[in-house]
Design a protein around this nucleic acid. Structure first.
Lengths: 193, 193
DNA sequence: CGATTTGCCTAAAGGCTTTAGGAAACTTCA
DNA sequence: TGAAGTTTCCTAAAGCCTTTAGGCAAATCG
């Protein structure tokens, strides 16, 4: 029998495509095997387990997003950088919903530490250089930005904003405006009242 | 054979507990059957399918959160209301991680429309009555709040904020401060610069 | 109390995961 | 070039999950 030429790389890539087509939940070793017209057991030469496959798809997605973000950030600062960065996530999630879902997979600490997730955090910090924030507010702001981007995109993708007016593109722009305003005018502690 | 006294209600409740103990992903019809010391097939008298079980757990979680939120909101307004509302989500997610994850399940439109999700949206709008926002900004703000709450909680639960300083409780307080400040000072359109 | 409905069971089929062991296809190098 | 070794893919099989079908006993209703 001729060999199929499987590699971990090709399998992961196929898994990522599958995720975008039918949802990350539906990605199984079996489904990937079918895609290569190969028996399931054969994939275990290249993958440790089903979980291994999913983790690799997640890492791929994180890399791809980080690469796009790095490019988007080049030569920009301030609100421009903020908007470009934010758009990278949203656009990526729209183009690759399955991969985006994969990127949400909970990674074990070591894997996470070695992943592109680290670059994401660094870039977010870099954006904040355009605003006047000292620690620990800078860290709070990093977390806030992460929350908004992730939260917005996952609600939007999950249909949380239904198809009602005003459209989500408009909300997205206004959200970025709001974040920019907030960062330029970060409240001091205990702003009660 | 004596009957086990199964009901849809009891099964869903058991499923929710299971979710909190071992994660929503691990909730299966089989696992719930085991919990009642009953054969798997027996559950299909009370549940349409595995997906039905999961959906019902999601609906339960949405109800519980909405109930808590409604109580928290009673008699409060402005930043007090905002903070109380926000804390409901975070606390619920910490107490019931599995149920919280369930609440993130994508529901089909009809189910979603009949769910407590509607109450959540209404309450968020109610909170904004304490701030001076006209449409469409009010809707943008509703979406922003939803994004932040959901995004923050899911990143925190997923270990996204690791265990680094400053602690997440502090960030949470500051996030609410920031949102309050933002809502009181919502930027006009095109605040570029 | 007999008849009907309901609830749980056994049986069974089909799918996914994962391991074990075999055979063909590549690679290496004399 | 061809023998030896390695790698890749295959068959087989066990284990777990879902879901349907059909049966018997328990609860409920006249």
């Amino acid at each position: 029998m001729a060999r199929a030429g499987l590699t971990t790389e090709r399998l992961v890539r196929a898994g990522a495509e599958l995720a975008d087509e039918v949802g990350f939940e539906q990605v199984t070793v079996s489904a990937v095997a079918r895609r290569f017209d190969v028996k399931v057991a054969s994939l275990y030469t290249h993958l440790k387990s089903s979980h291994d496959l999913k983790t690799r798809i997640a890492l791929l997605a994180l890399e791809e997003m980080a690469d796009r973000a790095a490019e988007a950030l080049a030569g920009r600062s301030g609100k421009d950088a903020l908007a470009a960065f934010a758009d990278v996530y949203r656009d990526y999630a729209h183009e690759h919903p399955g991969r985006y879902a994969a990127a949400q997979l909970r990674l074990d600490p070591e894997t996470a530490a070695a992943s592109a997730g680290v670059r994401h955090a660094q870039m977010t910090r870099a954006i904040l250089r355009g605003y006047d924030l000292a620690e620990p507010d800078r860290t709070h702001a990093v977390r806030l930005l992460g929350s908004v981007f992730h939260g917005y995109v996952s609600l939007e993708l999950g249909g949380g904003f239904s198809h009602s007016a005003p459209d989500t593109q408009e909300t997205w722009s206004r959200t970025i405006d709001a974040l920019d305003a907030l960062l330029r005018n970060w409240p001091a502690r205990e702003t009660n009242g």
